[in-house]
Nucleic acid binder design. Structure first.
Lengths: 244, 244
DNA sequence: AATTTTCCTTGATATAGATCAAATCATGAC
DNA sequence: GTCATGATTTGATCTATATCAAGGAAAATT
């Protein structure tokens, strides 16, 4: 799901009230949700959920970064999603997940017990509708990533990854182009996200620094210096997927 | 979404009544859906929807096979989904799709105008819930495919693809193992689905024939001779992703 | 400050799968 | 039945990326 930092700002407490389920909630519905709400914290590196875990709650990510990953028996791993603040974890109507959720940085979740949450959905169609939309958004992201994994070159993968970070971290203002962006993952994690090895990630990132497309102030903070070049390097249509 | 051929059999007319939205519909709700229903046919090779098309209807695939695909400017294409009978096309709450839907064989769709369909959802929460479940099912499939595209070898990809066809075409009975299965795609299409080239698909399929894992009676019909070997070749956990 | 650990870089080499090229095989059209 | 068109097979070669290996830089821990 796309982060909508603007709407998140409306609520310093819990973004779920604005983005995930509550955009059209009445005061009484918000009250009910408020009562279900609890918080959980995880340290960087902690597993949040393992594959096969029973899902006893659904949650909204309030702070930090987490990854969704799948691992094969021999250790090969593929990340299948990246969770940033305001993203939603959970499968209403499903008891289990079949991937791991891991905290990359310290993470705070705003949790709702699954059962009462599902009961609430039954009586509030607009929440169910919102959940359909969110699931479809995620599906679009997953499919975009399938194109990346199946057909893009290493360079295009890295460029697309950076481009995505820009999209998800910008508040929309042009001013923000000047601010440093956060690279929330190690290069090994990026590799697992892009279906590459860490060496290839290092080499490609190195090349993009040399070519003056991006600039790193330190390992975790960077700026896009040449945005048009970045966009071209993604291999995507320049129109960004909008209608012709 | 997984094909559920068993439930499809309950209705020779339109599978959507049983699978996609109507499992828990009351007679009056079914009547309303009946009134919205129209059929559309497409010839093999016809585009059903182009990227950027306005979605005026949602639909259930009644007959045939269709693919969801993304194409880059330079012609590289990646399939992001395969539609078999009883699968659902459409994005309630979304006006556009950002991939192409193409009929691989002759296709019959059972269509519902999007607007009235969405209005109906508003008043029937269980349909919305069903749609959430379907979207989450699709998401699981997409993520499984991300692992395949990002980390599996050519051999594992082909084996997984065959394995998936078996899963989706079997009615569940052991007897069916004896019957021939349909390979609905050309090798080029398989390549685009697996992020490979057609030559690699041909070579790997050839090898699996030689090794006696599969047997082709003709180009489009095959049997799995050595199912355990197939399963091992997929690279997946033998427990099939069930809980530990 | 020293030490350990984790992360990143760089080089040399190997290889799976892509690419290029040509037959051969089906299948439907006429 | 012949032709034409697309689908498949097979071989030779190439190349992007993986793999193996080692050193260096930053961050965390003592």
């Amino acid at each position: 799901m796309t982060v909508d930092l603007l709407s998140r700002q409306k609520c310093s407490d819990c973004p779920i009230r604005h983005r995930a389920v509550c955009a059209r909630c009445s005061p009484s519905e918000l009250d009910r949700l408020e009562q279900l709400k609890t918080y959980k914290s995880f340290k960087a590196g902690d597993p949040i959920l393992w594959r096969g875990d029973k899902l006893t709650y659904v949650a909204s990510l309030v702070q930090g970064v987490a990854t969704l990953g799948k691992t094969m028996e021999d250790g090969r791993t593929q990340m299948v999603g990246l969770l940033l603040p305001s993203d939603f974890i959970g499968r209403p109507g499903r008891a289990e997940i079949d991937f791991d959720v891991v905290a990359v940085t310290d993470v705070t979740l705003c949790c709702f017990q699954r059962k009462p949450f599902e009961e609430m959905i039954q009586s509030t169609p607009h929440i169910a509708q919102r959940l359909v939309e969110m699931a479809l958004d995620e599906l679009d992201v997953a499919r975009e990533w399938m194109l990346l994994l199946g057909r893009k070159t290493a360079r295009e993968k890295i460029a697309t990854f950076i481009h995505m970070l820009v999209q998800r971290q910008h508040l929309g203002g042009v001013e923000d182009t000047k601010k440093d962006l956060v690279l929330p993952l190690t290069q090994e994690q990026i590799a697992n996200y892009l279906g590459l090895t860490l060496e290839t990630v290092s080499r490609q990132l190195g090349a993009m620094k040399k070519e003056g497309i991006v600039h790193f102030s330190d390992r975790r903070h960077f700026k896009v210096v040449d945005f048009p070049a970045l966009q071209i390097a993604t291999g995507d249509d320049s129109d960004g997927g909008m209608l012709v």
